[in-house]
Design a protein around this nucleic acid. Structure first.
Lengths: 342, 342
DNA sequence: TTGTAGGCGTTATCAG
DNA sequence: CTGATAACGCCTACAA
């Protein structure tokens, strides 16, 4: 059984195809009799008419599709952003083409090609792109927006997550609690991450501003271990050595996954209590932070409103000026941080 | 700067549009001179030609898009399936239209409409559909496949996750370990879940088959609590009462999220050790099970091969017979289960 | 207020 | 082996 076309609707309603189009699209500047309207609407409904998006796209060059690029769904942070975006686009009757790159530049490239081919109406990147040149090229035809960190080298609309402020905020809080020996734990990554760097800058500056020595901070980058949950394992193994060493009283995980691993090891170590013996915190405010016991102290970036803003910017496509915005950041204090042990 | 069309390529290559189409699509049953081939390929490359998918779709009615329906990304299980599917479809140059319903029937409906409008080449459901009638209707035009539980009432291709076998497998294992007081903990859900029911059937039958009394099993359905992670919270609060009561020696969570909550509460209760005092296990084999310490005993359903199979079935569209398949299931023994305390 | 006609970029059916 | 030519279903001047 073939799908009804606008021609069929026109025939049934006893009007021309044009009229059908006018009625169904509510074309502005056109006035039609109520009766014609009704006839068309009834006919469309009776035939269960659904416009052919190919034909429509061919004329309008609009696909009602948005490409969303993310490195992985395993990190609840990206999942969270994706859900916010999806939630909003669904309201607007847009669909999301999922472009999960697994941090592979090759896959990223092939998804970019697919986005161009499908003529998506916009592209949202949730990480630092590997193909800046090509993406910039694409952005002349298709609006592109980055939700990550600002960078001078990337001439694209950007909503910054403000990693610097986050690092500073979190560290200030720890310093206030009396911590003077702080570790920053990073999991290994295969590609550049501006976010991680910016957070580190923020942490360092907070320490400097408080008049503490640089030695207060120990930066630990773990090796890759195991196949599952690299990130959580990283935290787990890092905490092992941190506890052995016994110097640091507070640990910052590069994200909630790492923090989760940190916490996990601490909870499974006899005679260690959180936060009495060691404070743990991280970034991203994902559900993991709330699901843990004790709950994890973390940082939120108003992600929901930023995601909605990103979609709005894409769809309004407000010209060619490259915008660089920053979101507010907010400390979410959980049960995993407390005064430094004395 | 407008995109090059196949006409432009034809002109540059000095051949007709038809020839371009033949070359670029490797149309079978057509033989062309190597020189013509080269000329076309070179021209296409020079103009950076990308076929217009609207025009293509208009002719072929193929969108290279697959709709994937899932209730939520918050449950790592769906995330896992989605990644397997996405991974495979990317290989095949297909794209995924994300249809996340948040268990809202209304949203599910609207995504169905969008799938029809975009003429997706296939639809994969990862849960029990709410609009069986409409979906069945759609399946006459667009291949549909369910990855969940088989049901007599749903005349659609189904790959069963075999919840019954899973329940049985897990329970047999617990019984072998000497457990005679087992709790099954369910989080509240808003819509029907066949999976949950089938797992329960399996659990019950395992108990019956072992010659134990029905009273061995306590089914606990929690109330909804808190806004974050309903599921994990469910486990957390259920474990509270289970430990208070002190009767059960083993607890089965309806999924890894619930089990995680169960474990979390147990670990945070003084004088309770896992698995010495209480065994905990669940279903789905998500990363949560591996990320926890102790790691959680869980059940895997060969999800990766099932997901690939589903995609293959969709794309081959092998006629109209409704297929009902079942996958194998596999017990993943973690550190959270052990012999019953005496 | 409504209808006619042309074209968007492909693919596919024919002749040549 | 190659090239005209006609659709696919919709939108939109322009004409009536």
């Amino acid at each position: 059984m073939k799908r009804a076309t606008s021609k069929d609707v026109a025939k049934l309603a006893g009007v021309s195809q044009t009229t059908v189009s006018f009625v169904l699209n509510n074309t502005p500047g056109i006035s039609l009799s109520d009766e014609t309207r009704r006839k068309v609407l009834d006919a469309a409904h009776e035939l269960n008419y659904i416009p052919n998006s190919f034909a429509k796209g061919l004329k309008t060059s609009r696909s009602k599709l948005l490409g969303v690029f993310l490195p992985t769904l395993s990190n609840p942070f990206y999942q969270k952003l994706l859900q916010y975006i999806e939630n909003y686009t669904a309201e607007l009757s847009y669909n999301i083409m999922l472009c999960c790159t697994y941090r592979s530049a090759e896959r990223e490239k092939s998804y970019l090609d697919l986005c161009v081919e499908h003529q998506v109406d916009g592209i949202i990147y949730l990480f630092t792109p590997n193909w800046v040149k090509q993406l910039t090229q694409i952005s002349h035809n298709i609006p592109v927006i980055l939700i990550s960190e600002k960078s001078e080298n990337i001439p694209l609309n950007t909503i910054s997550l403000n990693g610097y402020q986050c690092g500073k905020l979190l560290t200030n809080y720890l310093i206030q609690l009396g911590h003077k020996n702080i570790a920053y734990v990073l999991s290994p990554v295969t590609s550049v991450s501006l976010t991680r760097q910016m957070r580190l800058e923020g942490i360092k500056d907070a320490i400097k501003d408080a008049g503490l020595s640089e030695d207060c901070l120990e930066v630990i980058t773990t090796n890759s271990t195991g196949q599952y949950n690299l990130e959580a394992n990283s935290g787990f193994s890092a905490m092992h050595s941190i506890l052995n060493e016994g110097k640091n009283t507070a640990v910052i995980g590069v994200n909630d996954l790492v923090s989760f691993g940190l916490l996990s090891k601490a909870l499974n170590t006899p005679n260690i209590r959180v936060p009495d013996d060691i404070s743990i915190c991280g970034f991203d405010n994902t559900y993991l932070a709330h699901m843990s016991h004790p709950t994890l102290t973390t940082v939120e970036y108003c992600t929901e409103s930023l995601c909605r803003l990103a979609v709005d910017m894409l769809l309004s496509n407000n010209g060619s000026a490259v915008l660089k915005l920053s979101g507010e950041v907010q400390l979410i204090i959980g049960e995993s941080t407390g005064p430094a042990r004395t």
